[in-house]
């Protein structure tokens, strides 16, 4: 049984059909890429899966459970965690605080523990800090752990986003354009980090990316969206040979005004 099943997902914004009848599934441990020209609906798809947008119709199944319509925080706690394409870091908080924040996902409310600073609260807090530290080490940001998030380079911000996602111990990690805006060196470094992490922790990865080489390199299976419709699905080789896919990318300049 597939870990994540998207069935006939549609999302309309007013008159605009952002997603039309999207259906696919993701198996446990898979690495799935989602590509498509700008405006294809990739981020919308992420938003709907992760609960930030409600689907107009269709379902999202995590295992047996229909998660479409749940709150984003609930979906995250069920193990579907997404990162952001836009810069959403809090500039004045430290890098470490960002990861510690994410580590809190598995904790309960712990109100009394926090107020009275009980020893169990103290030790769970310490555990979170240590976990944050080791996560930062794995993305090579530990030297910057006390720096303000606003001081990071673009590539470092992306890595921080990935660290935050990992801190949530996801079953499915959804990366929204993790490499966009990085320079070659940063890309090389980040891909190495990501590969290493994927080797260590077996989780399912869904990635939106524009960089074809990276997508083809990381992902065993790719889905192509164009204007909200799934136009192709298959291995990197199949997809890059697909006529519709080529047309969608080449045809972008023709349809620029549309």
């Amino acid at each position: 049984m597939a870990l994540l099943r998207i069935e006939n997902l549609c999302k309309n914004f007013g008159g605009l059909r952002a997603l039309q009848d999207i259906t696919f599934s993701v198996g446990s441990g898979e690495v799935l890429g989602i590509i498509g020209p700008n405006g294809a609906g990739k981020s919308t798809l992420f938003n709907v899966i992760s609960g930030f947008e409600k689907p107009t119709s269709g379902e999202v199944f995590l295992g047996e459970q229909d998660i479409s319509g749940l709150k984003p925080s609930a979906i995250a706690r069920l193990g579907v965690v997404r990162t952001w394409q836009e810069n959403k870091l809090v500039k004045d908080e430290t890098v470490k605080q960002h990861v510690v924040l994410s580590c809190g996902i598995s904790k309960g409310f712990q109100f009394l523990g926090a107020v009275f600073n009980t020893s169990s609260y103290g030790s769970s807090r310490k555990a979170m800090e240590e976990k944050a530290h080791s996560l930062l080490e794995s993305v090579d940001l530990s030297s910057l752990s006390t720096s303000r998030a606003g001081e990071l380079t673009h590539g470092q911000q992306r890595l921080l986003g990935i660290a935050m996602g990992l801190a949530c111990e996801p079953r499915i990690l959804m990366l929204d354009e993790p490499f966009t805006g990085m320079n070659t060196q940063e890309i090389r470094f980040a891909s190495r980090v990501l590969t290493r992490i994927m080797d260590e922790v077996k989780f399912t990865l869904i990635m939106i990316e524009h960089n074809m080489r990276l997508v083809m390199g990381f992902c065993k299976r790719i889905i192509v969206l164009d204007h909200g419709i799934k136009i192709a699905e298959g291995s990197p080789a199949e997809v890059s040979a697909n006529k519709d896919v080529i047309q969608a990318y080449l045809g972008v300049s023709k349809h620029a005004g549309a």
Binding site: V81, M164, A167
Partner: peptide, 8 residues
Amino acid sequence: SLAESVGI
């Protein structure tokens, strides 16, 4: 939204 995406 960042907080929400990490389960808060």
